[in-house]
Amino acid sequence: MATLRREIPKFIVMIFGLFMLLGSFTTIPIFDTIKAELTSWTVTISAVSVWLGAVYASYANYRLYQRNKKEGIEHLIYFIVPFVVFGLQFGSGILYGVESPQYRWYFTNIYQNIGATVYAVMFFTLASSAYRTFIASSWDATALLAGGIIYTLRQIPLFQVMIPGIVGAGEWVMLVPNVGGGRGAVIAAALGALALGVRTLMGQEATITEGG
């Protein structure tokens, strides 16, 4: 049973990974075909398993309700609302189609509006945290402040008009010191990812296939 539960999944990781590497590093047509076929499977597997997210979200919502139900009727409302909205929007998508104006009504007014406003709220939280933390208290903090302020001024049309040279300065920050630091981070992260990838393909990263 241990073979079925642990060893075969590890073997699958290795063999599928190997096919991908052969498809990428060799010019043998059969490996290109296998790579194209196998990579297309990931799309279908992901799409088929999407209901799993709905089940987990519903369960989390149920647990939340169970924990708070004694505190009043409002928690019952919180519990019911996602199911009602889901039912209405899903039903509308099935009945009229996802391209219909009926479906778009829910999409635009509920989904898009709340999602977009959450990011708008983030403006205020980010602004207040910057008020506390964007202080030139050390050389590192000064570098952070300088990078942030110069690039902010560069992005804002008012300062492009008011401060001659700010566009050039902002672009320089973006394309010179930012690229220096960013490229170093890219290479370092890639080396890390490579090490992790090789360990995974060799069956050394057990955690990845231990779930479930």
Binding site: A127, A130, Y131, R132, F134, I135, A136, S137, L145, I149, T152, Q155, I156, P157, L158, F159
Partner: peptide, 23 residues
């Protein structure tokens, strides 16, 4: 949107300046 961004960012910059002056 450009104009709103130009004016809306001002309080943030002023507050960052205030934070540094206070420090």
């Amino acid at each position: 949107m450009s104009d709103s961004k130009s004016i809306g960012i001002l309080p943030q910059l002023v507050f960052i300046a205030f934070g540094n002056i206070a420090y």
